[in-house]
């Protein structure tokens, strides 16, 4: 076992144990991320009328997929990092021979692992409540995701998580200079919320709005992985290229800001 895997395993062990002690918190988190389920209700009900391009079965399936994507791409590093900087608890972490980003990333995975049981229960509940989502109806066939959908969906989710993490962490690094970076990042989150397909599928956007939004990174974070999971045709190449380019660009920016931030932090007397 290499030193790296040992390290990451140790991180995971401690973070998982820590997260288990916060299980009440994590339950609240799971509730906090139910927005797709709220929208599931609104849009299936709206689609019943037949006024929209897709029927209720498709809508239910879409929002269940969005719910799953949302659950595996939850990121909270900015709040954690802001707290560490403001409270001065970052300093001891900087003395360790490992970049703390690994610790934060592993903590997210541990938190997701803790959330699995809650998510599973909610997922089963949704599938029971909306059987048309997997059975299909007159307009869509049954939901039988093939290998392509599973692998593609999983990869897209990982890429979306990475991008979300980098985006938040990069914003978080500005805590070295600014107060309340989390509040600033909230603005970015609002764009993700309304433009990623979380509150409404891109299919019901007016054509011009849809085309414009596809040039932003947002729909690729939610709408794209959800479409892949549904086994629906999606712009696969464009999706992964967009995600990849943003990830690389943000990683570079992140490192630059990190190095400068550390200089500034130590100059302030950490």
């Amino acid at each position: 076992m290499s030193a790296w895997t040992r390290r990451l395993r140790a991180f995971f062990g401690i973070e998982y144990a820590l997260m288990l002690t916060y299980r009440a918190e994590i339950l609240l988190w799971a509730i906090a991320t139910c927005l797709p389920l709220i929208m599931l209700g609104v849009w299936t009900q709206a689609a019943e009328s037949g006024d929209f391009v897709h029927g209720p079965a498709w809508m239910a399936r879409y929002f269940i997929a969005v719910f799953l994507v949302r659950q595996v791409t939850i990121v909270w590093v900015i709040h954690h990092f802001e707290y560490l900087v403001v409270s001065g608890r970052l300093s001891p972490q900087l003395l360790l021979p490992v970049d703390p980003v690994w610790r934060y990333a592993v903590a997210h995975l541990a938190e997701q692992a803790c959330r699995i049981p809650i998510v599973a229960v909610m997922l089963v509940g949704c599938l029971l409540l909306f059987p048309a989502a997997w059975r299909g109806d007159a307009t869509v066939g049954p939901w039988v995701p093939g290998w392509g959908a599973l692998v593609g969906g999983a990869l897209a989710c990982m890429a979306a998580f990475t991008l979300r993490f980098l985006l938040q962490y990069t914003f978080g690094l500005f805590a070295f200079w600014l107060e309340r970076v989390a509040a600033v990042h909230e603005l970015v989150y609002l764009l993700i919320l309304f433009l990623s397909g979380m509150v409404a599928p891109l299919e019901v956007f007016p054509a011009a709005a849809r085309d414009a939004v596809l040039w932003t990174p947002f729909p690729w974070l939610v709408w794209f992985p959800a479409k892949l999971m549904m086994g629906e045709p999606a712009p696969v190449l464009r999706g992964f290229v967009t995600l990849g380019v943003w990830i690389v660009a943000l990683a570079v920016v992140n490192r630059v800001v990190w190095i400068r931030g550390l200089k500034h932090y130590s100059a302030m007397g950490a």
Partner: peptide, 10 residues
Amino acid sequence: PGLRGAVRHL
């Protein structure tokens, strides 16, 4: 202490 302890405690 440890992961196992945490799970068992749960």
